[in-house]
């Protein structure tokens, strides 16, 4: 119970710091009333819009109102589409979560076996070739991967759609784009971890005792290598929650990243604040889960809790 209370306190402090920083940064970024009024609007019109949204009050007053509102989870209405900002953002959350889960899942099933294979015998010639390919792939932006996949599977072969909302198959290319974009990093981490375990005493002892190569790999290398892998997967998951912007951009994907960029472009403060709040909350939850996963996976952490 004490641990839960501590975590909740952390969450409140985290959201408070993020919200305050965001509040200040947004007020420095520009005046949404000018954008809403349009090119060449009279100062009177701009003032009237400011008054409508409370932007005419002092910064401190605005901040107090802001804190009171977010304490009630009321982010106000979007300045451009007038929908309640939190509800608007939450509409797009399932789509982002779904894509994130899929991307991390496929990323794992591509990258972990590849990384293990690469790390087990890194000096072998064909593995060096894969290592080189991974290095090149790591430097390839997701934007390029996405366009290449569309060109091959949509334009040339005509097998898959590239626009969101056109059926089940529309999930394939965005998922593949994100998976391929994330995989090289994970492959390298897994490979390096596996390679590192092969230099450890316990590995050499098991090898000297005559353990079969597969047993060495699966029983002695992989469990230790997966600790760092889990850490990276958690970070990748959290990263995707904040929106796989490029993917959403080229596939017209209705996700949080796209919403965030559009709201920043329009200085739509309530929507920006609601999006960042939701993402911060989710990242916190992901980190919480990852902590538990680490405890389960690493006996040393479990013991340290005793």
């Amino acid at each position: 119970m004490k641990a839960v209370g501590s975590r909740l306190l952390q969450l409140v402090v985290l959201l408070g710091i993020i919200s305050t920083t965001l509040f200040l940064l947004l007020r420095l970024s520009g005046d949404p009333a000018i954008l809403l009024a349009g090119e060449g609007a009279s100062p009177e019109t701009i003032d009237a819009i400011r008054a409508d949204y409370g932007f005419d009050k002092s910064l401190f007053q605005q901040y107090l109102m802001f804190l009171w509102d977010i304490a009630r989870l009321d982010f106000g209405k979007s300045l451009v589409n007038s929908q309640p900002a939190l509800g608007f953002v939450l509409q797009y959350l399932p789509s982002t979560l779904h894509l994130t889960f899929l991307a991390v899942f496929f990323n794992s099933i591509i990258a972990i076996p590849a990384g293990v294979w690469l790390g087990a015998k890194p000096t072998q010639r064909r593995r060096k070739v894969l290592s080189t390919i991974v290095s090149v792939a790591q430097g390839t932006p997701a934007y390029v991967i996405g366009l290449l996949l569309i060109q091959i599977f949509s334009v040339w072969l005509g097998w898959l759609p590239s626009i969101a909302g056109t059926g089940t198959w529309a999930w394939v290319l965005p998922t593949a784009t994100l998976s391929f974009a994330l995989a090289p990093n994970l492959i390298r981490v897994v490979a390096a971890s596996v390679e590192d375990t092969t230099r450890q005493d316990y590995y050499r002892t098991a090898k000297a005792n005559g353990a079969a190569p597969n047993v060495l790999l699966i029983k002695h290398s992989l469990p230790n290598a997966l600790l760092s892998t889990t850490s990276l997967l958690g970070a990748q998951f959290a990263f995707l929650l904040s929106g796989a912007l490029i993917t959403e951009y080229i596939f017209a994907w209705p996700g949080l990243g796209l919403i965030l960029v559009q709201s920043i472009t329009n200085l739509d403060f309530p929507t920006i604040q609601a999006t960042v709040f939701v993402v911060a909350y989710l990242v916190f939850i992901v980190n919480l889960i990852m902590d538990q996963v680490f405890r389960l996976a690493d006996p040393r952490l479990r013991r340290s809790q005793l």
Partner: peptide
Amino acid sequence: IIPLADAASRLQALQSGQV
């Protein structure tokens, strides 16, 4: 009406017959 902010994506959508 589908928004595709990226010009390359728009053309690819046309070339693939999706729009």
